[in-house]
């Protein structure tokens, strides 16, 4: 079973990985966007977005989604950061997971954008990665983790 960082600790992944060739993903399996669209019952569903797949089509069903995975095929493609903020700002409350080839030095930014779970392609040293989550204790901007910008908190 694959492991990931969730809510600041290392846990086992309880979801079945995505299978793009499967015609009808079972409950508890992560769907591609296309598979997810075809689900008859979206309650408790899990869906994975790729770069170029904006989250807009999900906005009407965010309450039904338990897991939203945003995949990073390459760590330099930053579209997922905006997707994450966008879904959180539209009220998504479920697990928001980054997966793929992001690096531990991006963890604070990812967390600030609303991700609460991190499944790294290289999961050989998740303990070391955990320390990167704590690189910063202060920020200028408003984001998901700290909804007030520094200028509204400065004393």
């Amino acid at each position: 079973m694959r492991r990931l960082i969730k809510h600041d600790s290392i846990v086992d992944d309880t979801w079945k990985p995505i299978d793009p060739d499967c015609s009808a993903p079972e409950h508890g399996q992560i769907c591609s966007l296309e598979q997810w669209h075809n689900l008859a019952d979206k309650d408790g569903s899990a869906v994975q977005l790729e770069p170029g797949q904006e989250p807009t089509p999900l906005f009407d069903a965010l309450e039904k989604i338990d897991l939203l995975v945003i995949n990073f095929p390459v760590f330099t493609d930053g579209r997922g950061f905006s997707y994450a903020r966008d879904v959180r700002e539209h009220g998504y409350q479920g697990e928001l997971r980054a997966s793929g080839h992001f690096i531990r030095d991006q963890l604070t930014y990812l967390q600030r954008c609303g991700f609460d779970a991190f499944q790294m392609a290289d999961d050989s040293d998740l303990n070391a990665a955990l320390t990167s989550l704590r690189d910063f204790t202060e920020h200028y901007q408003a984001a998901i983790d700290q909804p007030l910008p520094l200028f509204r908190r400065r004393l």
Binding site: D77, Q106, T108, L110, C113, H139, A143, P149
Partner: peptide
């Protein structure tokens, strides 16, 4: 400057 410094969303434009 403050807003853009270490902006989490726009570091990989």
């Amino acid at each position: 400057r403050q807003w853009s410094t270490l902006h989490p969303e726009f570091a990989f434009l």
